[in-house]
Design a protein around this nucleic acid. Structure first.
Length: 423
DNA sequence: TCTGGGGTCCTAGGACCC
DNA sequence: TCTGGGGTCCTAGGACCC
């Protein structure tokens, strides 16, 4: 019989900020998306003020000022490093685990006897809190969907742990658990279910699985089984190879000149190359898109994309830049205020081994050496220490279209020059 | 004025084949 | 009026996740 625990950090990004500033403990805290656009993490105090997930910052600026809400830009270097530290702790509790997202990990708890799981989870939670400062919640159940549900329900509990190994306990919690909070049921499915009078997880558990499939595809059928304690979604302890890779950004200010678009897309292509090289992957085509803001319907709209083939699969940033430039050349049309662009690739492959051909293999080797040197310099001295000239007017000089992070905290744990100070 | 980024999976429908 | 019967592969779009 399978048994899984799901542990996650409460208001994770906000909690990371609190670790490094004790004064934030009692204050509402929110963390913003890229470009300081909308709220993507809120503490319970911020939620109580009525701040919604994904709410645009300009709508809540006054509310935040009046209530002394601590507002932060995203600090991914910090959150990523905190996440890594938490997972090293989880490893000591269960070697069989799956990192599901930056703040969520599934752990195999089948080896822990049924009666001891709550205590085990309490220990896991306390250790994580003590060693990292991040408060967590733990849910336990026989399937991933039930572990997720238990985790969600545990948020209201003082102990922060809920064990749903027992079917009677499952039934008790599911009886008034809203369907919209069930893992895999989003807005569209919720509306269909509500139309049938299905409001709580317990009713979904009792649905005919064929009906669920008809309404919500095979995904819905799996949810019904999973709620009944029958696993349909496996624990993936080794991460499967990724299928696609993208770098897309909203601009810090609207782009109206082609040269800016070229530089922006060149920067995204550079970053794409970095990501591909880190995963030891390559691609033989990239799609570039650009569009205006869909929120401004009183100005001319434009949304276009183009896929460019690359003769041989590569992860060389300079090749990707070249392909990106071709796309921009074709797509660019003046007279619009572009708000966002990006570069996307699918069908990732292992980098081809350069053939020992008579001629151009030297080019391959030199290109790879240049990329390796650039990656090493950027690893040692920080991102964008060395960049391709196509991306800009000079290293570390920010452009007007660059993403805004005006309220970012220091990268406390990953930069020597940004260590927290004790006075 | 100001509204994120990066993924996965599923299905329907078209193109193409014999 | 009425125009075969399967297959496979690919892609676009929808839904969902954090």
């Amino acid at each position: 019989v399978t048994a899984l625990a799901l542990i996650d950090g409460n208001s994770f990004y906000c909690s990371c900020e609190r670790v490094f500033d004790a004064k934030l403990e009692k204050r509402p805290v929110i963390v913003l998306s890229n470009n300081d656009g909308c709220a993507v993490a809120r503490t319970s105090e911020a939620k109580a003020l009525g701040i919604k997930m994904g709410q645009p910052m300009f709508q809540i600026r006054d509310l935040c000022r009046e209530n002394k809400v601590a507002v932060f830009s995203s600090n991914y270097a910090l959150y990523g490093d905190m996440s890594r530290r938490m997972n090293t702790i989880y490893d000591t509790f269960s070697p069989d685990n799956e990192i599901y997202s930056i703040d969520e990990t599934f752990l195999d708890v089948a080896p822990v006897p049924k009666g001891q799981r709550t205590e085990w989870a309490g220990d896991l939670r306390a250790t994580t809190r003590q060693w990292t400062g991040i408060p967590c919640s733990v849910g336990i159940g026989p399937t991933k969907t039930l572990a997720k549900l238990a985790n969600k329900a545990s948020k209201h509990l003082p102990g922060g742990v809920l064990d749903l190994s027992d079917p009677r306990e499952q039934a008790r919690v599911m009886a008034d658990f809203p369907i919209g909070d069930v893992w895999g049921i989003g807005r569209a499915s919720q509306a269909k279910l509500l139309a049938l009078g299905i409001r709580f997880a317990g009713q979904v558990r009792d649905m005919d699985s064929k009906l669920a499939r008809q309404m919500m595809t095979v995904v819905g059928e799996k949810i019904v089984h999973e709620l009944n304690g029958i696993p349909c979604i496996a624990l993936e302890t080794v991460a499967p190879q990724r299928k696609g890779c993208a770098v897309t950004r909203s601009f810090g200010s609207r782009v109206t000149m082609k040269v800016e678009m070229e530089q922006a897309v060149a920067g995204y292509a550079t970053r794409l190359g970095e990501k591909l090289r880190r995963h030891n992957l390559a691609t033989d085509q990239v799609t570039v898109f650009m569009h205006t803001s869909r929120f401004n319907d009183d100005e001319p709209q434009r949304s276009v994309s183009m896929t460019v083939d690359i003769p041989e699969a590569t992860n060389d940033s300079l090749q990707l830049i070249k392909a990106g430039r071709r796309a921009v050349d074709n797509l660019w049309l003046s007279g619009f205020r572009y708000s966002k662009a990006g570069i996307i690739t699918q069908d990732l492959v292992r980098p081809p081994i350069p053939q020992r051909a008579l001629f151009d293999n030297l080019d391959h080797e030199r290109a790879a050496a240049v990329m390796a040197a650039m990656d090493e310099a950027n690893r040692r001295w920080g991102r964008a220490t060395v960049v391709p000239a196509a991306t800009m007017g000079g290293p570390k000089k920010s452009q007007s279209f660059s993403t805004k992070f005006e309220m970012r905290s220091p990268r406390f744990t990953t930069r020597w020059d940004e260590l927290p100070e004790c006075r």
